[in-house]
């Protein structure tokens, strides 16, 4: 089981900020494919991952990164701090 978090417009498009899911996905890309296959709103939200960022256990990572031992995956648009 992993916690999947969504922020900003991605959270709004999917309609929730956090969910716990059971997955066998080996990489972030595999997880994204699983999510896309779930429902239309996920497919639309994850249409273009080049416009998204991912963090694994609160550290910025890449979509081809493995999910071994990861407990928390967060997806969000590019950050606009400052």
């Amino acid at each position: 089981m992993i916690d999947v978090l969504y922020f900003a417009w991605l959270r709004e498009r999917i309609g929730l900020g956090r969910e716990r899911i059971s997955t066998q996905a080996a990489t972030v890309n595999d997880l994204v494919d699983e999510l896309r296959a779930r429902e239309e709103r996920y497919a639309l939200a994850f249409e273009d991952t080049s416009s998204l960022r991912v963090a694994l256990d609160q550290e910025l990572s890449d979509f081809d990164a493995p999910l071994d031992g990861v407990r928390e995956v967060a997806f969000f648009p590019p950050m606009t701090g400052g």
């Binding site: 900003a8 910025l60 967060a74 969000f76 648009p77 950050m79 606009t80 701090g81 400052g82």
Partner: peptide, 8 residues
Amino acid sequence: LKSRAPFW
């Protein structure tokens, strides 16, 4: 902070 701190 602009591009690497998770604020939106």
